[in-house]
Simulated scan of single mutants.
Amino acid sequence: MSARILATGSYLPGEPIDNEQLEKLCGPLPADVLAGLGVARRHWLVDPATGEHIISNSRMAEAAARVALAKAGLAPQDVDLIVLSTASPEYHLPTAASYVQEHLGLQRCATIELRAGCVGAVQALDIARRQLADGTFRTALVIGAEAISPLLVPMYQGLDPLGVRMRDRMSLYNFGDGAAAVVLRADPARGTGPERAPGLGACVFGTACLGGGRKPGMRVVGGGTDLPYSRQLARKRLMDIQLDASGVAGLGPQVFVTALRDMLDRTGWQLSDIDAFVLPEGNAEYFSSELAAAGMSRQDHELVQRRVVENLADVAATGSPAVLLALDAGVAQGRIRPGDTVLLLAIEASRYVYAGLSLRWGEPMVAR
Protein backbone atom coordinates (compact mmCIF):
# COMPACT_ATOMS: atom_id res chain seq x y z
CA MET A 1 0.00 0.00 0.00
CA SER A 2 1.24 3.50 -0.81
CA ALA A 3 -0.21 7.00 -0.71
CA ARG A 4 -0.91 9.55 -3.40
CA ILE A 5 -1.26 13.32 -3.41
CA LEU A 6 -4.54 14.03 -5.14
CA ALA A 7 -4.48 17.83 -4.89
CA THR A 8 -3.08 20.87 -3.13
CA GLY A 9 -4.82 24.05 -2.01
CA SER A 10 -4.03 27.41 -0.41
CA TYR A 11 -5.71 30.24 1.44
CA LEU A 12 -4.32 33.73 2.14
CA PRO A 13 -6.38 36.10 4.31
CA GLY A 14 -7.32 39.65 3.40
CA GLU A 15 -5.78 41.87 0.76
CA PRO A 16 -2.01 41.79 0.21
CA ILE A 17 -0.10 44.31 2.33
CA ASP A 18 2.87 45.71 0.43
CA ASN A 19 5.99 47.27 1.89
CA GLU A 20 4.79 50.82 1.20
CA GLN A 21 1.65 50.24 3.28
CA LEU A 22 3.68 48.72 6.08
CA GLU A 23 6.13 51.63 6.12
CA LYS A 24 3.24 54.01 6.93
CA LEU A 25 2.30 51.85 9.93
CA CYS A 26 5.64 50.97 11.47
CA GLY A 27 8.36 52.95 9.70
CA PRO A 28 10.89 51.92 7.06
CA LEU A 29 13.61 49.31 6.96
CA PRO A 30 17.01 50.19 5.50
CA ALA A 31 16.96 49.45 1.75
CA ASP A 32 19.66 46.78 2.00
CA VAL A 33 17.87 45.00 4.84
CA LEU A 34 14.55 45.10 2.98
CA ALA A 35 16.18 43.73 -0.16
CA GLY A 36 17.84 41.00 1.88
CA LEU A 37 14.53 39.85 3.35
CA GLY A 38 13.13 39.33 -0.15
CA VAL A 39 9.52 40.04 0.90
CA ALA A 40 7.41 42.39 -1.22
CA ARG A 41 3.97 41.68 0.24
CA ARG A 42 2.24 39.55 2.84
CA HIS A 43 -1.27 38.66 4.04
CA TRP A 44 -2.49 39.11 7.62
CA LEU A 45 -5.64 37.78 9.26
CA VAL A 46 -5.62 40.98 11.32
CA ASP A 47 -6.82 44.24 9.84
CA PRO A 48 -3.54 46.19 9.92
CA ALA A 49 -5.31 49.48 10.67
CA THR A 50 -7.73 48.39 13.42
CA GLY A 51 -6.18 45.21 14.82
CA GLU A 52 -9.47 43.34 14.44
CA HIS A 53 -9.36 39.69 13.35
CA ILE A 54 -11.08 38.99 10.04
CA ILE A 55 -10.68 35.19 10.25
CA SER A 56 -9.14 32.58 12.58
CA ASN A 57 -6.36 30.03 12.25
CA SER A 58 -8.68 27.04 11.98
CA ARG A 59 -10.97 28.84 9.50
CA MET A 60 -7.97 29.51 7.25
CA ALA A 61 -7.08 25.83 7.52
CA GLU A 62 -10.65 24.89 6.61
CA ALA A 63 -10.60 27.21 3.59
CA ALA A 64 -7.35 25.72 2.26
CA ALA A 65 -8.69 22.21 2.88
CA ARG A 66 -11.88 22.92 0.93
CA VAL A 67 -9.87 24.20 -2.04
CA ALA A 68 -7.74 21.04 -2.07
CA LEU A 69 -10.76 18.75 -1.67
CA ALA A 70 -12.57 20.48 -4.54
CA LYS A 71 -9.56 20.01 -6.80
CA ALA A 72 -9.45 16.33 -5.82
CA GLY A 73 -13.15 15.87 -6.56
CA LEU A 74 -13.81 14.78 -2.97
CA ALA A 75 -16.21 15.87 -0.24
CA PRO A 76 -15.25 16.52 3.39
CA GLN A 77 -17.09 13.32 4.32
CA ASP A 78 -14.44 11.36 2.38
CA VAL A 79 -11.78 12.43 4.90
CA ASP A 80 -10.99 10.11 7.80
CA LEU A 81 -7.70 11.65 8.99
CA ILE A 82 -6.64 15.28 9.52
CA VAL A 83 -3.01 16.06 10.36
CA LEU A 84 -2.44 19.75 11.06
CA SER A 85 0.67 21.71 11.96
CA THR A 86 0.57 25.13 13.60
CA ALA A 87 2.43 27.16 16.19
CA SER A 88 -0.42 29.66 16.57
CA PRO A 89 -3.72 27.90 17.35
CA GLU A 90 -6.72 29.77 18.74
CA TYR A 91 -6.52 27.76 21.96
CA HIS A 92 -4.11 25.48 23.75
CA LEU A 93 -6.99 22.98 23.84
CA PRO A 94 -9.04 21.79 22.03
CA THR A 95 -6.67 21.42 19.12
CA ALA A 96 -7.05 23.48 15.97
CA ALA A 97 -7.31 20.19 14.05
CA SER A 98 -10.50 19.33 15.94
CA TYR A 99 -11.95 22.72 15.00
CA VAL A 100 -11.12 22.08 11.35
CA GLN A 101 -12.98 18.77 11.69
CA GLU A 102 -15.96 20.65 13.13
CA HIS A 103 -15.86 23.36 10.43
CA LEU A 104 -15.87 20.65 7.75
CA GLY A 105 -19.00 19.13 9.30
CA LEU A 106 -17.37 15.84 10.31
CA GLN A 107 -18.92 14.23 13.38
CA ARG A 108 -16.15 11.65 13.55
CA CYS A 109 -12.60 11.88 12.22
CA ALA A 110 -9.10 11.08 13.42
CA THR A 111 -7.09 14.23 14.18
CA ILE A 112 -3.40 14.72 14.87
CA GLU A 113 -1.82 18.10 15.58
CA LEU A 114 1.85 19.05 15.56
CA ARG A 115 3.06 22.08 17.46
CA ALA A 116 5.69 23.24 15.01
CA GLY A 117 6.65 26.03 12.65
CA CYS A 118 8.26 25.71 9.23
CA VAL A 119 9.05 21.99 9.49
CA GLY A 120 5.61 20.96 10.70
CA ALA A 121 3.80 20.44 7.40
CA VAL A 122 6.59 18.23 6.05
CA GLN A 123 6.52 16.17 9.24
CA ALA A 124 2.71 16.02 8.99
CA LEU A 125 2.93 14.72 5.41
CA ASP A 126 5.16 11.89 6.55
CA ILE A 127 2.84 10.99 9.44
CA ALA A 128 -0.19 10.94 7.14
CA ARG A 129 1.40 8.92 4.34
CA ARG A 130 2.54 6.29 6.88
CA GLN A 131 -0.97 6.07 8.33
CA LEU A 132 -2.38 5.56 4.83
CA ALA A 133 0.33 3.14 3.76
CA ASP A 134 -0.34 0.77 6.65
CA GLY A 135 -4.06 0.72 5.89
CA THR A 136 -5.20 2.57 9.03
CA PHE A 137 -6.93 5.30 7.01
CA ARG A 138 -7.94 5.89 3.39
CA THR A 139 -8.07 9.66 2.86
CA ALA A 140 -6.09 12.31 4.72
CA LEU A 141 -5.94 16.08 4.84
CA VAL A 142 -2.51 17.48 5.69
CA ILE A 143 -2.65 21.16 6.60
CA GLY A 144 -0.22 23.85 7.66
CA ALA A 145 -1.76 27.03 9.10
CA GLU A 146 -0.28 30.02 10.86
CA ALA A 147 -1.65 33.21 12.43
CA ILE A 148 1.38 35.39 13.20
CA SER A 149 -0.09 38.85 12.69
CA PRO A 150 -1.88 38.95 16.10
CA LEU A 151 1.61 39.06 17.61
CA LEU A 152 2.79 41.72 15.16
CA VAL A 153 0.15 44.45 15.36
CA PRO A 154 0.85 45.29 19.05
CA MET A 155 4.41 46.12 18.02
CA TYR A 156 3.22 49.31 16.29
CA GLN A 157 -0.40 49.93 17.23
CA GLY A 158 -0.78 53.29 18.99
CA LEU A 159 2.85 54.27 18.34
CA ASP A 160 4.47 56.82 16.08
CA PRO A 161 5.75 54.73 13.13
CA LEU A 162 9.25 56.16 13.56
CA GLY A 163 9.18 55.12 17.21
CA VAL A 164 8.89 51.40 16.43
CA ARG A 165 12.07 49.52 17.31
CA MET A 166 14.13 48.32 14.36
CA ARG A 167 14.14 44.72 15.63
CA ASP A 168 10.34 44.81 15.74
CA ARG A 169 10.23 46.18 12.19
CA MET A 170 12.27 43.17 11.08
CA SER A 171 9.51 40.86 12.34
CA LEU A 172 6.74 43.06 10.93
CA TYR A 173 8.21 43.04 7.43
CA ASN A 174 9.22 39.38 7.56
CA PHE A 175 6.10 37.44 8.58
CA GLY A 176 2.73 36.65 7.03
CA ASP A 177 -0.32 34.48 7.70
CA GLY A 178 -1.92 31.76 5.62
CA ALA A 179 -2.82 28.11 5.24
CA ALA A 180 -2.19 25.36 2.73
CA ALA A 181 -3.45 21.81 2.42
CA VAL A 182 -2.73 18.55 0.64
CA VAL A 183 -5.18 15.68 0.07
CA LEU A 184 -3.64 12.22 0.32
CA ARG A 185 -5.32 8.92 -0.50
CA ALA A 186 -4.24 5.34 0.08
CA ASP A 187 -3.25 3.77 -3.23
CA PRO A 188 -3.13 -0.04 -3.33
CA ALA A 189 -2.30 0.01 -7.05
CA ARG A 190 -1.82 2.46 -9.91
CA GLY A 191 -5.55 2.47 -10.63
CA THR A 192 -7.60 5.01 -12.57
CA GLY A 193 -9.63 8.11 -11.82
CA PRO A 194 -8.29 10.39 -9.06
CA GLU A 195 -5.52 7.88 -8.31
CA ARG A 196 -3.89 9.05 -11.54
CA ALA A 197 -3.44 12.57 -10.15
CA PRO A 198 0.00 13.82 -9.01
CA GLY A 199 1.26 11.91 -6.01
CA LEU A 200 3.97 10.81 -3.66
CA GLY A 201 6.59 8.60 -5.19
CA ALA A 202 9.96 7.08 -4.20
CA CYS A 203 9.42 8.80 -0.89
CA VAL A 204 12.14 9.30 1.73
CA PHE A 205 11.79 11.34 4.92
CA GLY A 206 14.47 12.90 7.08
CA THR A 207 14.41 15.26 10.06
CA ALA A 208 16.68 16.42 12.87
CA CYS A 209 17.00 19.13 15.48
CA LEU A 210 20.46 20.68 15.51
CA GLY A 211 19.79 23.17 18.28
CA GLY A 212 20.68 21.16 21.34
CA GLY A 213 22.68 23.41 23.66
CA ARG A 214 22.21 26.44 21.40
CA LYS A 215 20.27 29.62 21.99
CA PRO A 216 16.94 29.37 20.13
CA GLY A 217 16.91 31.18 16.81
CA MET A 218 13.33 32.21 17.48
CA ARG A 219 10.98 32.02 20.43
CA VAL A 220 7.34 32.93 20.87
CA VAL A 221 6.91 33.74 24.53
CA GLY A 222 3.82 34.42 26.59
CA GLY A 223 0.62 32.57 27.29
CA GLY A 224 2.54 29.43 28.25
CA THR A 225 3.64 28.02 31.60
CA ASP A 226 7.18 29.37 31.84
CA LEU A 227 6.19 31.91 34.51
CA PRO A 228 3.23 32.57 36.78
CA TYR A 229 0.62 34.56 34.90
CA SER A 230 0.98 37.45 37.35
CA ARG A 231 4.57 37.85 36.16
CA GLN A 232 3.67 37.32 32.52
CA LEU A 233 1.13 40.14 32.71
CA ALA A 234 3.91 42.46 33.82
CA ARG A 235 5.73 42.00 30.52
CA LYS A 236 5.61 44.75 27.94
CA ARG A 237 3.61 42.42 25.69
CA LEU A 238 1.61 39.38 26.80
CA MET A 239 2.97 37.49 23.80
CA ASP A 240 6.03 38.35 21.75
CA ILE A 241 8.32 37.04 19.01
CA GLN A 242 11.99 37.00 19.95
CA LEU A 243 14.27 36.56 16.94
CA ASP A 244 18.04 36.02 17.09
CA ALA A 245 18.69 37.47 13.64
CA SER A 246 22.48 37.06 13.75
CA GLY A 247 22.23 33.50 14.99
CA VAL A 248 19.75 32.55 12.26
CA ALA A 249 21.87 34.18 9.57
CA GLY A 250 24.95 32.33 10.80
CA LEU A 251 23.58 28.87 11.53
CA GLY A 252 20.57 28.66 9.20
CA PRO A 253 22.60 27.97 6.04
CA GLN A 254 24.60 25.30 7.88
CA VAL A 255 21.34 23.59 8.82
CA PHE A 256 20.25 23.73 5.17
CA VAL A 257 23.51 22.23 3.90
CA THR A 258 23.32 19.50 6.55
CA ALA A 259 19.70 18.77 5.65
CA LEU A 260 20.45 18.63 1.94
CA ARG A 261 23.37 16.25 2.41
CA ASP A 262 21.26 14.05 4.68
CA MET A 263 18.45 13.84 2.14
CA LEU A 264 20.86 13.06 -0.72
CA ASP A 265 22.44 10.31 1.38
CA ARG A 266 19.03 8.84 2.24
CA THR A 267 17.74 8.88 -1.34
CA GLY A 268 20.93 8.05 -3.18
CA TRP A 269 20.23 11.00 -5.51
CA GLN A 270 22.67 13.57 -6.83
CA LEU A 271 21.81 17.26 -6.81
CA SER A 272 21.43 17.12 -10.58
CA ASP A 273 18.73 14.42 -10.18
CA ILE A 274 16.35 16.86 -8.46
CA ASP A 275 14.06 18.89 -10.70
CA ALA A 276 12.49 21.08 -8.01
CA PHE A 277 13.72 22.14 -4.58
CA VAL A 278 10.64 23.35 -2.71
CA LEU A 279 12.43 25.60 -0.25
CA PRO A 280 10.31 28.59 0.81
CA GLU A 281 13.19 30.96 1.57
CA GLY A 282 15.70 29.44 -0.83
CA ASN A 283 16.24 32.55 -2.93
CA ALA A 284 16.30 35.08 -0.09
CA GLU A 285 19.54 37.06 -0.17
CA TYR A 286 20.22 36.62 3.55
CA PHE A 287 20.04 32.86 3.04
CA SER A 288 21.89 32.53 -0.25
CA SER A 289 24.88 34.67 0.67
CA GLU A 290 25.90 32.39 3.54
CA LEU A 291 25.70 29.01 1.82
CA ALA A 292 29.27 29.05 0.51
CA ALA A 293 30.59 29.63 4.03
CA ALA A 294 28.47 26.68 5.15
CA GLY A 295 30.29 24.36 2.76
CA MET A 296 28.26 24.45 -0.46
CA SER A 297 30.26 24.85 -3.67
CA ARG A 298 29.40 27.67 -6.07
CA GLN A 299 28.46 25.13 -8.74
CA ASP A 300 26.07 23.30 -6.40
CA HIS A 301 24.63 26.57 -5.14
CA GLU A 302 23.90 27.79 -8.66
CA LEU A 303 22.26 24.49 -9.55
CA VAL A 304 20.00 24.63 -6.50
CA GLN A 305 19.10 28.29 -7.12
CA ARG A 306 17.98 27.52 -10.68
CA ARG A 307 15.59 24.88 -9.40
CA VAL A 308 14.28 26.44 -6.20
CA VAL A 309 10.48 26.70 -6.05
CA GLU A 310 9.38 29.39 -3.59
CA ASN A 311 6.98 32.31 -3.22
CA LEU A 312 8.49 34.25 -0.32
CA ALA A 313 8.11 37.62 -2.05
CA ASP A 314 4.33 37.17 -2.26
CA VAL A 315 3.51 35.57 1.10
CA ALA A 316 6.48 36.36 3.43
CA ALA A 317 7.66 33.86 6.04
CA THR A 318 4.57 31.90 7.06
CA GLY A 319 5.82 29.09 9.30
CA SER A 320 3.81 25.88 9.09
CA PRO A 321 2.16 26.42 5.67
CA ALA A 322 5.33 27.72 3.98
CA VAL A 323 6.38 24.55 2.15
CA LEU A 324 2.82 23.66 1.13
CA LEU A 325 2.14 27.22 -0.08
CA ALA A 326 5.27 27.03 -2.23
CA LEU A 327 4.31 23.56 -3.47
CA ASP A 328 0.80 24.68 -4.42
CA ALA A 329 2.18 27.74 -6.23
CA GLY A 330 4.82 25.65 -8.02
CA VAL A 331 2.20 23.20 -9.31
CA ALA A 332 -0.14 26.02 -10.39
CA GLN A 333 2.68 27.78 -12.27
CA GLY A 334 3.83 24.59 -14.01
CA ARG A 335 7.20 24.63 -12.27
CA ILE A 336 6.45 21.15 -10.86
CA ARG A 337 5.24 18.69 -13.46
CA PRO A 338 4.34 15.00 -13.53
CA GLY A 339 7.48 12.90 -13.50
CA ASP A 340 9.59 15.54 -11.73
CA THR A 341 11.85 14.57 -8.87
CA VAL A 342 10.91 16.90 -6.02
CA LEU A 343 12.54 17.63 -2.67
CA LEU A 344 10.44 19.34 -0.01
CA LEU A 345 12.86 20.90 2.46
CA ALA A 346 11.90 23.01 5.48
CA ILE A 347 14.27 24.80 7.82
CA GLU A 348 12.95 26.09 11.15
CA ALA A 349 14.88 28.65 13.20
CA SER A 350 13.29 27.88 16.57
CA ARG A 351 15.76 25.14 17.49
CA TYR A 352 17.44 24.83 14.10
CA VAL A 353 15.28 21.96 12.91
CA TYR A 354 14.99 20.57 9.40
CA ALA A 355 12.54 18.20 7.76
CA GLY A 356 12.79 16.85 4.23
CA LEU A 357 10.64 14.65 2.03
CA SER A 358 11.63 13.41 -1.41
CA LEU A 359 9.05 12.33 -3.93
CA ARG A 360 8.48 11.58 -7.60
CA TRP A 361 5.67 13.88 -8.63
CA GLY A 362 2.95 12.08 -10.56
CA GLU A 363 4.26 8.55 -10.14
CA PRO A 364 3.08 5.89 -7.64
CA MET A 365 4.99 5.78 -4.37
CA VAL A 366 7.46 2.95 -3.96
CA ALA A 367 8.97 2.74 -0.48
CA ARG A 368 12.77 2.64 -0.49
Rank of each mutant, 00 (worst) to 15 (best):
F256M: 06
D300L: 00
A49D: 04
Q123I: 07
V182R: 05
R298K: 01
G144V: 03
L125A: 11
E195H: 12
A7Q: 06
G250F: 09
C109H: 08
A245P: 01
V39P: 01
Y286W: 15
H92R: 10
A133F: 02
A87F: 02
E102R: 13
Q131G: 12
V257W: 03
D78W: 04
A332V: 02
Q131H: 10
Q333W: 06
N311W: 00
A293I: 00
G27D: 10
A189V: 14
S246N: 09
D187I: 01
E102T: 05
Q333A: 14
M60F: 06
G36H: 05
E285V: 00
V153I: 14
V308R: 08
V204A: 05
Y286I: 02
R219D: 15
V255K: 11
R42D: 14
C26I: 06
P150T: 11
D328A: 14
G199C: 11
V257A: 07
T86S: 02
V315P: 07
G334W: 01
D32Y: 03
L325K: 06
F277E: 04
G250Q: 13
M155S: 09
R42E: 12
A332I: 02
Y156C: 14
V278T: 05
L325N: 01
G193S: 10
G176S: 13
D18V: 05
N57T: 15
P188W: 12
L279E: 04
D244H: 06
R235L: 12
D262E: 12
G213N: 09
C118I: 13
L25H: 04
S2E: 00
R165Q: 15
Y229R: 14
A97M: 02
R130K: 11
L151V: 01
Q131N: 09
L271T: 03
D244P: 05
L327K: 14
G14D: 06
Y229P: 01
S85A: 15
I148H: 13
D300P: 00
T95G: 06
A116Y: 10
A294Y: 00
A181S: 05
